[in-house]
Deep mutational scan, measured.
Amino acid sequence: ETEYTFDDKREADRAAKEAQNNGLRVHVTKDGNRWKVRID
């Protein structure tokens, strides 16, 4: 399990989409004014 934090939602969405394309499970959550992408 890996977690990334992004300031920009577009960057978070791009990272999530890339991980999904690689067959990974992805969870995107909002943390204040930042975005967390957790990859299982």
Rank of each mutant, 00 (worst) to 15 (best):
R25P: 04
Q20P: 01
I39W: 05
N21S: 13
L24F: 14
V26P: 04
V26Y: 04
E11K: 07
V26S: 05
E18R: 12
K9P: 10
D8Q: 07
G23P: 01
W35V: 00
D13I: 15
N22D: 06
L24W: 12
D40P: 04
V28G: 00
E1G: 14
K30F: 14
E18W: 13
G23C: 12
K9R: 09
T5D: 05
K17H: 10
V37Y: 00
N22K: 14
D31Q: 08
R34L: 09
V26W: 03
N22R: 15
Y4D: 03
D13P: 01
E3H: 06
H27I: 14
K17A: 13
I39P: 02
A16Q: 04
V37R: 00
D7I: 09
A19I: 07
A16H: 03
K9D: 04
A19R: 03
V28T: 03
R38N: 06
R25M: 08
D7Q: 09
T5F: 15
F6V: 03
G32K: 04
N21R: 14
E18K: 10
N33P: 08
D40F: 15
D13T: 08
Q20A: 12
F6T: 03
T29L: 11
D13L: 15
K9W: 15
D40N: 11
L24T: 03
K9M: 06
A12Q: 00
T2H: 12
D7K: 09
H27M: 12
N22L: 14
Q20T: 11
T5S: 09
E3W: 14
N33L: 07
T2S: 09
G23T: 02
H27E: 11
V26L: 02
R10L: 12
Q20F: 10
E11A: 11
V37L: 07
R14T: 07
R25E: 07
K36Y: 08
V28P: 01
V28K: 02
R10F: 12
E1N: 11
L24I: 05
D13W: 15
T2N: 10
W35Q: 00
D13Q: 11
I39A: 03
E3D: 06
D7R: 08
E3T: 11
D31T: 07
A19M: 14
E18T: 09
D8W: 05
K30N: 06
N22V: 08
H27A: 09
Q20E: 12
D7A: 11
N33Y: 05
A19K: 03
H27P: 00
E3G: 04
T29G: 05
N33W: 05
V37W: 00
K30H: 09
A12T: 02
R34A: 06
R34F: 09
W35E: 00
D31A: 08
G23R: 04
F6D: 01
Y4V: 07
E11P: 02
R14E: 11
L24S: 06
R34W: 06
K17T: 10
A12P: 01
D13R: 08
K9Y: 14
R10E: 14
N33K: 06
R25A: 08
H27K: 11
Y4K: 07
E1P: 14
D31I: 11
R10H: 12
A16Y: 06
T5P: 02
V37E: 00
T29I: 13
R10D: 14
V37G: 00
R38Y: 10
I39Q: 02
D40E: 15
T29V: 13
R14M: 10
E3V: 14
D7F: 11
K17N: 09
D31H: 09
K30I: 06
R38D: 02
R10P: 06
K36I: 15
Q20S: 10
A12V: 03
A15P: 01
N33M: 05
R10I: 12
D40Q: 13
E11N: 06
E3R: 05
A15W: 15
D31Y: 06
A19Q: 04
H27N: 08
E1T: 14
E18Y: 09
K36S: 04
T2Y: 13
V26G: 03
R38C: 09
K36N: 05
N33F: 06
Q20W: 11
D31K: 05
L24G: 04
D31W: 06
R14S: 07
D40S: 15
D13V: 13
T5K: 04
